[in-house]
Design a protein around this nucleic acid. Sequence first.
DNA 1: TTCCTTTTTAGAAACATTCTAATCTATTGA
DNA 2: TCAATAGATTAGAATGTTTCTAAAAAGGAA
Lengths: 150, 150
Amino acid sequence: MTDQKTNTGADFSRTDPAALEDRIRSAALRPTRQRLALAELLFSNGNRHLTAEKLHSEVLHSGVKISLATIYNNLHQFTAAGLLREVVVDSSKSYFDTNVTPHHHFFHEDEGRLQDIESSELTVLGIPNLPAGTAISSIDVIVRLSKQSS
Amino acid sequence: MTDQKTNTGADFSRTDPAALEDRIRSAALRPTRQRLALAELLFSNGNRHLTAEKLHSEVLHSGVKISLATIYNNLHQFTAAGLLREVVVDSSKSYFDTNVTPHHHFFHEDEGRLQDIESSELTVLGIPNLPAGTAISSIDVIVRLSKQSS
DNA sequence: TTCCTTTTTAGAAACATTCTAATCTATTGA
DNA sequence: TCAATAGATTAGAATGTTTCTAAAAAGGAA
């Protein structure tokens, strides 16, 4: 149980450089210095929800020189490979989630922060018949939270 | 039952200029030429899901000169007044929904088109306890649809 | 009408994201 | 080990959506 294709939340690959490299190789990508740095931040710290800009500043602070274009390239490549999932909650920027199993989200509107809701907890009932010629690509539930008013 | 604060889908104000003007006045806004043109497109054609750009091109085609800045100003003012609701489904642009009652959406990913799911049909069960100090602002369910693969 | 406020506007600016084309790097296999 | 090549990174330009600015126009009250 040290390495799996799925990621349910446990930080299973825990900074082990070889495991990170395998993960990148399994996506048919080369384990470059930049990718390893990104993978470490993304996949060795439990489930995370990050914007491109946040990831960029984290990786720069970790001492690895990397351009924003590379951040975007890799976020998209990781997403295409199923290592990340994009979550649409804000019309102005994209969030990427390291938990790629089916699940839902709380979104703290004031902080711009996402929080997982496991799909074992939350159920969606009564989806109508699908329009002809279509198939479900995903079901996204976002519970938007504001600060308590009183 | 000709005019109500809520809008469940019926096109109840049906191009009646006086009703549109009341609707604008009730939001503490002046019924300008531009606002009336926008209100007519938004509120006299059943439930609609529009982007700023789409609304702009529609209103220009209807013969009313209006700038994109005015479109944005008014979409936001109408939203603040509860006449519209913003739906976040696409990280690159905003959609505005004329149906402001609680409900959910199908999103046709290939066409960028939204379709209502009434909340009488779809139920969300098992929302976990809310984080301390927060209250639910809204619950958004988006069923993303792709073209059937086969 | 006059005055005051709101609204509209063109254009500039801001912002996230994507593109371009040049340079660099990992990998392969001789 | 090295050269060849395919893939990766990069700075900076470009794009698209949305917001801002400041000035002109229009609505409404008196």
